[in-house]
Amino acid sequence: MYRFTLKPLGWMGAIALLTAIAPPVAAQNNGSRLTCQTRATLNPGVTLNYRITGSLLEGAAQPQELAAAAGLALTVQWYDRNGQLQTLLRNAVLNNDPQLAPGGDYRQLPFEAPFRPQRHRGDLLYATPASVHGLYVSLRPTNEQPQQIQIVHALRSGEYVRSRVGTCQSEVPEMDRLVDEQLRRLQARLEAQDWAEADLITRRLLAPGSTPNPPFNTVLLSPEQIRTIDQLWHRASNGRFGLSVQLRVWQQMRAAHPRNSEAAVNGLRDRLGWQLKTPRAEEDFISSDWLNESELTYSLTAPVGHLPWVGVSDAVVQAVAVPPPGVHCGVCTVDAMQLRYDRFYQYIPQRMEQVEPWLLRGN
């Protein structure tokens, strides 16, 4: 029986993997495209970012068929001490051969329970031969298109890091076109300094459900697309607005409140000018001390980092608060209040986590 120690590793473990950079491998195109992302923290300030892309066979009757037909490739990146993005593995092929697992048994790996292999059941489990000491991937669910991912990664023999639960998304054939269209609209609105429309488009890309009539329900943006959004805002505002501006403030707040996420979120709110300064003329019983969409300052006189916003459009909140005629909803007002208060404390850390790996920390 193999025994493993699961713990964060230091810089030397990460550097050791640099000798295992794999040449690009073209993934097969056998069916619906899939993108998965997750990350693992080695120690404070050191994070590995994992991104998987490829195809899974459509219409496979059994999970074993689905796994065998996969053409998945893995990229692993991290930031060095100078804040520069480094690539450990690029488009390394993933293989579902059980012999790649320690002792030929994936069940010995320290995945969390929902991702752990089960006896007598086909599992979406993979490994990459490009990793020196072993890198293992588990996708869930196994009986349909995967929605979540977890990775167990050995950076030296017998010691593993385990990623947090990440997200998988099936790629809609027209998704790239739709995203590119939104990015072109964003560029045009920012060049015209139409800050309100640019903010709406940005939220449509980063959190589609926060806007009315989004062009897609969900989207897992690529690192390049996230950087493009940030650069467009940065250039149009002469460095005043953008995701990286907000990220720097968030890192300061998180450092000031390392064990209190709510305090960090409140600090960010205050610095970026998202807190209500004077009482509203009319109380609507839904709003909080966070600014609503219509109360934002859509100009360069706004506080640094004020845009793009992270809230939910007024139209979406009102649609939740006031159900259609004939529809009874006993908790609609409570749900609307949650969108204008509690959601900030959940979404802001998630948003910063989403963009942090792909924005240069030194800038």
Rank of each mutant, 00 (worst) to 15 (best):
T167Q: 14
E159P: 06
E174N: 13
R184L: 12
D176R: 15
D176S: 12
H153F: 03
Q150S: 01
A130E: 02
P129V: 06
A113C: 11
S131Y: 09
L135R: 10
N143S: 07
A127D: 00
V165M: 03
L135M: 07
C168T: 03
T128C: 09
S163V: 03
L155R: 08
V179N: 13
Q148F: 06
S163K: 13
R116S: 11
Q118V: 05
Q147T: 07
V165T: 08
Q148E: 01
A154E: 00
M175H: 05
A127P: 01
L155P: 00
P114S: 08
P146L: 10
M175V: 02
P173G: 06
P146K: 10
I151L: 12
G122N: 08
E181A: 15
R116V: 05
L124V: 03
G166M: 10
P141D: 04
Q118I: 03
R162D: 01
I149V: 08
E174K: 15
P141S: 06
E159D: 07
Q147S: 05
R119H: 08
S157V: 04
T128D: 00
R164F: 04
P141M: 07
P173V: 12
G122I: 01
P129T: 09
S157W: 09
N143T: 04
V172H: 14
H133A: 07
V161E: 07
L124E: 02
R116K: 15
R116Y: 08
V179I: 15
P129C: 10
Q182D: 02
V152D: 02
A130V: 03
D176G: 12
Q182T: 03
R164D: 06
A130D: 01
R164S: 09
S131K: 13
Q148D: 00
D176V: 10
A113V: 14
Y160M: 14
I149Y: 06
V179G: 12
H133D: 05
F115P: 09
P114F: 12
A127S: 10
P129K: 15
L183M: 13
M175S: 04
D180Y: 13
C168W: 06
R116E: 03
R119A: 10
Y160L: 15
D176M: 12
L124H: 07
I151V: 12
V161Q: 11
H153V: 00
N143V: 04
Q169V: 02
V137C: 07
A113K: 15
C168I: 09
E181F: 14
G166I: 04
G122P: 03
V161R: 13
P129Y: 12
Q148C: 00
V132F: 14
S131C: 11
L183Y: 08
C168E: 03
R156F: 14
V137Q: 06
H153T: 00
H153Y: 02
D180S: 14
L183H: 06
V172A: 14
Y136G: 03
R116D: 02
H120Q: 15
Q147D: 05
L178G: 03
H153M: 01
G122L: 07
T128H: 11
P117M: 05
A154I: 00
G122F: 05
P114M: 10
F115R: 12
H133C: 04
A127W: 08
P173E: 01
R162E: 03
R116C: 07
R164N: 09
I149G: 01
Q150M: 08
L183I: 06
H133L: 05
V152F: 11
D123E: 14
E144G: 14
L135Y: 04
L155Y: 11
R177M: 02
L124M: 11
